[in-house]
Nucleic acid binder design. Structure first.
Lengths: 215, 215, 215, 215
DNA sequence: GATGAATGAGGCTTCATTCAT
DNA sequence: AATGAATGAAGCCTCATTCAT
């Protein structure tokens, strides 16, 4: 099973795609990610996918529907679970071994993260312009995962492992650091040679203990 | 002198703009920011600016030149200085009063930041697609400001005020937190009711001491 | 036997249609009549008929062939006879009872006329654009029925029951009134509440004696 | 001043058309009339008009707007007046000389009617499909001219010159004959050699006295 | 400097039709 | 006989840009 089939399976599972349809999705992901949704023409997608332009519209009523069909399932079925799992590991880390977290976060997720990177780029680009996308994210990530996350925070606060601060502010700061790392690592400077294990360790260190030296 | 004139002066100073040209720039900023560069048509800009379609091309050879004329000066003349100044204050904070930093950061910059927000949005959107823009930023911000920033970090490390960690990692973590706050505050959730003073305080607290409770 | 089967039998008799083919014809009649031939797509027809797009082209080589297969039989096998019969009754009326004519014209024909209305609309719409249709009509109605009609007129003129006027002009005036009534009744204002018996009576009165009062 | 300028002036007066726009309108009238609105492509219109396809859309937002811009003014400014005038003459004819009516109806109107024929064809074709067009006609012709017409009829009925019959039925029968003549003459058989004076005389004779011979 | 009509390439989408299953 | 995915030409329309005024 090829890499792309794997992605297809992960994101779009159970749907019966024709071979051409898969090609269209792959081409669209590549081009939307590289040139942006608005600057990618359907004729380019068709050419890259090796299909007639009309074929795209047999499967997707509009160009926008094609975009959404790529972007929505990822949000629905992957972002939530991944994020929630990974965040759990940050907390649990105080008890468990650091290596568990690192292995889990980096090794387990890295492959899929890199594979999903183009779609993530598309999502980040289009959030400001696609209201449906924004509301879908708020609904799936915001309301489910975020509340779950807030509850975790409260529990650890009660256990005395997190400082006193409104949970929403704590959440913002933790998420900022989590996403900031991924953003720097995979989007801003993907070509820089990262020592992933070490850098993840440092990110967590920063979240938990800050950058100021204790005297 | 109006608000917009003030912005014009700040960003585009010394250039003698005609009234029409100012209107074009203002309209372009609004529309690029709201709908994205690629999805904004020059005719829309002309209509919103109240000028004829041809007038835009009297001042700017192409639509892209209009984009660059908006986005480049901001980078050249504002982003660098602002960021460098503000970062200095984070470090100096260990000696000075927190209030100094807050006042400086929030009160002094808030007005101009909000005013520049649309242009910043445009820049963030277009970085991935405009190679010139990316290289311009690297040149003006990256190479000048970032090195300056790295030097500052080293100094404070030597003074024992920052933990031992490669300066580039430290930089990444600090900048992540700085920008993460601004991004959450002004781009992600501008409509949420923020207590700016408090939230800035918390951001700095997190950077310096982390979120884990010391026992 | 359903209403539609009845129509099918009347217009298309002896042809052995599959269930799907009947559905296609019915859907095509509805849509052509409602939106016009050129503005109706084969895929709409397929959807409304509940068949696959390809099925239409299994029975009809082209969209135009579908149109013709609907429109031609009606002309060949119904329009001529009906018109000739009805016109005979107008003439015979001077001797017979008015009621005979009314009963014949209205009660006998009304049901089938209403049922054929959609196809008649299609024919009227497409006459100017389909040369084959026009020549088919001239051939079947024009040359056969019209000459028959002219002969009738001449006979009644010789009997002194019609004024002296070239038979073609007489024909034009009589047909104008006949069709004008049907057109007003069923095409222009089908929703107005018509007293059909009375209005038919008036139409014939107008044809035979005019609208001016004799002193 | 050319023939077409004359039409332009009659139908679209006071509007400032560019030369290209006139060409577009002329080409559109020709093609819509000849092939039907739905079967005429904007690229054909552009080619026939000798302009770029984009030019059409500079003047008319949509193809439909082009249709309406051709068809609406004719209805608003010509059909009403012409019809009302001509109908008056039918009534007045009993007192005045027949020649007056004939001269007025045929000689005065013939030139403009022939010139407007293509547009009238377009209107007749599109009435069933363009709701706006239908309501525009009802508003401008129906409510204004028709009521005026009904009042005329009542007056002549009171004077004893028209038979007792509901005015709306009388109206239908008279209009049927009027339009029936024009329709036969200019739309159905424009190429037949018509003796217009005589045929108009016969039409009016038919309306007033019918086709049956008085003994 | 400013206009806005004109352009023509290209965008998204629809269409009638074909063909492997 | 029936399907429906696939096609590519064509349709309507938008766009950045040019140019005569």
């Amino acid at each position: 099973m090829s890499d792309n089939d794997l992605m297809m399976e992960h994101i779009f599972d159970k749907e019966n795609f024709t071979e051409k349809q898969k090609k269209i999705i792959e081409a669209a992901i590549d081009l939307f990610s590289e040139k942006g949704y608005a600057s990618t023409s359907t004729s380019e997608i068709a050419k890259k996918a090796g299909v007639a332009e009309g074929t795209i519209f047999r499967h997707y009523k509009t160009k926008k529907e094609l975009l959404m069909s790529i972007v929505m399932p990822l949000i629905t079925r992957l972002v939530g679970p991944i994020v929630v799992n990974d965040l759990n590991k940050v907390f649990d880390r105080q008890y468990d071994h650091v290596e568990d977290f690192l292995t889990a976060l980096i090794e387990n997720r890295k492959a899929i993260l890199i594979k999903l990177l183009p779609i993530i780029k598309i999502i980040l680009q289009e959030i400001p312009f696609q209201a449906e996308l924004k509301s879908h994210i708020i609904e799936h990530f915001g309301e489910k995962a975020f509340n779950l996350f807030l509850n975790k925070i409260k529990i650890y606060q009660e256990k005395g492992q997190l400082i006193d601060m409104p949970p929403t502010s704590l959440a913002r700061l933790m998420l900022t650091n989590m996403f900031g790392y991924l953003f720097s690592r995979y989007i801003l400077f993907p070509n820089y040679e990262w020592d992933d294990e070490l850098e993840t360790e440092r990110t967590i260190q920063s979240i938990m203990h800050g950058l100021g030296k204790k005297e």
